[in-house]
Design a protein around this nucleic acid. Structure first.
Lengths: 215, 215
DNA sequence: TACAACTGAATGAATGCTCATTCGGTGGAC
DNA sequence: GTCCACCGAATGAGCATTCATTCAGTTGTA
């Protein structure tokens, strides 16, 4: 996510040509938007706020993005795509399902934990986006959950994980737990490294809370 | 939540007197609002939409609520208060921490699972509310988490739960998992009884995913 | 019982403001 | 001189909120 190249190919969604290709300005607007959205929320953000923060005229924003919605959509999509690419690359190297879950949890928390503004946008705006940007979030969510479900399914197949649990339910809980860790971090006054929580979360899922167990 | 008496004492937050007390109309506006918010999201909902759906004139809405924000705030607060009252009453009767968690999970999923509109408002609007109605939701969240943390702490104290886990982290994960079950249910095309998932979720937290264990 | 005076809940058209978006013009690069 | 990225003031649609007016119901009087 953070080391994504971000080349502005076809910045303005529909008009393929006749669009400025100043990568720097494109990126500045996108960053400014994330920062403004994080601060005031999508609906309370003015396009002129974004333009101001990007040091660009109001009209210039529309040379790079079709409209305000498209800015949010692009920001979220770009970030999510980067994350998923990274996650897939790293997870396919790991054979042990438990390791895969551990790594995914780390990547999830690290991606958002290293960019608070992005984290705020994801935690606060993404849900309501589910309505007006529904296609997107539905598609991406399913991709993410597939990674988790595959790990769980593999673990069950090889007898490491209990077979009576629904991989679907566990995957949802797993995501929900991480998601809540992010929300909690975003709202917290305290400073702490979010990715440092990954192991604790995964441990709960692997071992549960009960004491009685054989090692 | 569903069996709450809902007596409209002091409907309009600040003007204590000189306010209509038509309980039916008050409730109709509130219900209409939840239904409209659920359908279009808070920011895309028009006060006139709410008035229409409540079969009331636009101006009448303002006899019962100070403004649009206040309607959402009231809806959320009323529902949450009802839920917390119910939860506290029921949990204090249960000694076993595991039973308490089971019951809480059930109540959580049942409360939202029996009112889809309310569930949508909670899942979609509550987060962004965290910004513009922050005092509220933060306070409530803490109350809820206290119930979970207490159960976990008790379980640890009596040696049923592992002591090395942070009750705070587990509580957040627990809430996050349930929250995600609700979101997933809200977005799902399929019809299923949400509260039926409670035991599966709690089971993950109590027993974890790994196979090796003593019963 | 009949009627006038009064009350205040309810109405909905009018107001006024807040932006997203547009577009005619500017200036720098080549 | 031409082109085009960029500018930012102007536009106008959309919408929360207000308030002058209506009228159903209640009280008081004879």
């Amino acid at each position: 996510m953070k080391d994504d190249p971000q080349i502005p190919v076809k910045p303005n969604g529909d008009s393929v040509l006749a669009v400025p290709r100043n990568a720097d300005k494109y990126q500045r607007i996108l960053d400014a938007a994330v920062s403004v959205f994080a601060e005031k929320g999508f609906f309370n953000s003015r396009v002129s706020d974004i333009a101001d923060r990007a040091d660009v005229a109001d009209g210039t924003v529309y040379l790079y993005f079709k409209n305000k919605d498209e800015i949010l959509k692009t920001a979220i999509n770009t970030a999510f795509d980067g994350f998923m690419r990274q996650a897939r690359t790293q997870l396919e190297k790991l054979a042990d399902p438990a390791d895969r879950l551990r790594r995914l949890a780390f990547l999830h928390l690290d991606a958002l934990g290293s960019n608070r503004n992005l984290a705020v946008v994801f935690q606060m705006e993404l849900r309501q986006s589910t309505r007006f940007l529904s296609e997107f979030s539905h598609h991406h969510m399913i991709e993410y959950l597939r990674l988790v479900r595959t790990a769980i399914g593999d673990g069950q197949a090889s007898g490491f994980f209990r077979r009576e649990m629904s991989d679907k339910v566990v995957a949802n809980c797993f995501f929900g737990a991480l998601d809540e860790m992010v929300t909690s971090w975003v709202l917290s006054e305290h400073e702490y490294r979010l990715s440092g929580m990954a192991d604790a979360v995964v441990d709960i899922f692997l071992n549960g809370m009960r004491v009685a167990r054989t090692p």
